[in-house]
Design a protein around this nucleic acid. Sequence first.
DNA 1: GGTGTGACAATGG
DNA 2: GCCATTGCCACAC
Length: 113
Amino acid sequence: MKKHDDGFFERVYAAVRKIPPGRVTTYGAIARCVGSPQASRMVGWAMNNSHTCGEYVPAHRVVNRNGMLTGKHHFDGPEVMASLLRNEGVRVEDDRVLDFQEKFWNPVPDTDL
DNA sequence: GGTGTGACAATGG
DNA sequence: GCCATTGCCACAC
């Protein structure tokens, strides 16, 4: 047996990978989905290490609570994140997701919490 | 094993 | 209502 998971990151990656194209979510939502709603900061860091995970993680679909592309700077380029989102049909302006509320996708379909 | 960090979030003034 | 600060949790060095 395997442990429950090699780390908190694995859960984050899994949740982010579940984000359908054209949709976005927040760090807090993912953090909550993985069981640590307070570890929202860790989620962002997980994204930074996402490239070390070996698997592709659509981190560009993850934005902060305000829908702002805070992590765009951590991509291959500051324009990559917005470009990817636009490419998926997400309207982005001023480094922020328009209709964020509309595009927001909850990793937890029905939380019991 | 301790310290620092980190792409947030919530609260206070 | 906006700006500033703290809290938080798990990982990397």
